[in-house]
Nucleic acid binder design. Structure first.
Lengths: 136, 136
DNA sequence: CCGTTTTATATCGGGGTACGATATGTCTGT
DNA sequence: ACAGACATATCGTACCCCGATATAAAACGG
């Protein structure tokens, strides 16, 4: 098993992986801002649209998929609601929970962003595969 | 060519990709902080160690690989130097350039972090492959 | 059912990091 | 040797996340 010490090539591989990641994220952030939303708002909208459950996600659900603290998700949702990207409504089955939905505007912006991202991700995928092959 | 419109499954794939990414980054950030450095400092050290060139990278080189503005890289290097992780020295061939090297302390912390990251990256790699397969 | 505990959301103050605008010093070409 | 390009540095600002704390609703035990 290729385990213990790291060769210069290993460091190089790790560094190249991170570089590819940052270039992708930079692309994504620029795309979001060009579409008139912040990168965080874009991630929020995607998390809602890609939520697997049968009903809309609650704030706490979004905090988990976005890897945020609950109250950070609260702030993010509030800013997005103010920008008319999402709407919160109280869960009829549990008045503590706020269920979050995309507005029409949110849907449109996300659809446009997701199209370019799918293309970019295909490029990113093969690049990543080449780099990570080096890890053994 | 699977192109134009996005299916619900496409959104789900995009969302899962981002989720996997965030979990990895969260792991990495926690690891860095446990090692006593900030996530940014970790990335800086890796960028230096993984730098391909014949001599040490200059501040501007690091800005490029870290996808930062020049002056953001300056600040990052200064904080890292204050924490005794890196040392800057003027390029003998061009007095404008500051070449950045890891200190002994920086080397040790990076080596420890890189070991755990290599393992985690191997897990991450197969997870990513599964998710991105869905993109067609 | 009533009081206690747990869960979910919300508020406030603070900190880290990146950015825009700007300044200074160094090199390069003519 | 001087104009313009380049590399680094400084300063004030903004955004986003977090810790600590608060409020409200549900779940649970006796």
């Amino acid at each position: 098993m290729s385990s213990r010490p790291l060769s210069p090539a290993d460091y190089r591989t790790l560094a190249q992986f991170r570089y590819a990641l940052r270039v992708f994220q930079r692309f994504s952030e620029d795309a979001a801002r060009s579409a008139g939303v912040t990168p965080s708002q874009h991630q929020l909208m995607l998390a809602i649209k890609g939520w697997g459950g049968s009903e809309d996600p609650a704030v706490g659900d979004l905090a988990e998929v976005l890897q945020l603290k609950h109250h950070s998700a609260v702030e993010l949702v509030q800013r997005a609601a103010q920008a008319d990207l999402v709407i919160a409504s109280t869960d009829p089955d549990d008045a503590r929970r706020q269920l979050i939905t995309l507005t029409e505007k949110g849907e449109e912006i996300l659809a446009s962003l997701s199209l370019t991202h799918r293309d970019e991700l295909r490029r990113f995928r093969s690049e990543m595969a080449d780099i990570l092959d080096e890890l053994g």
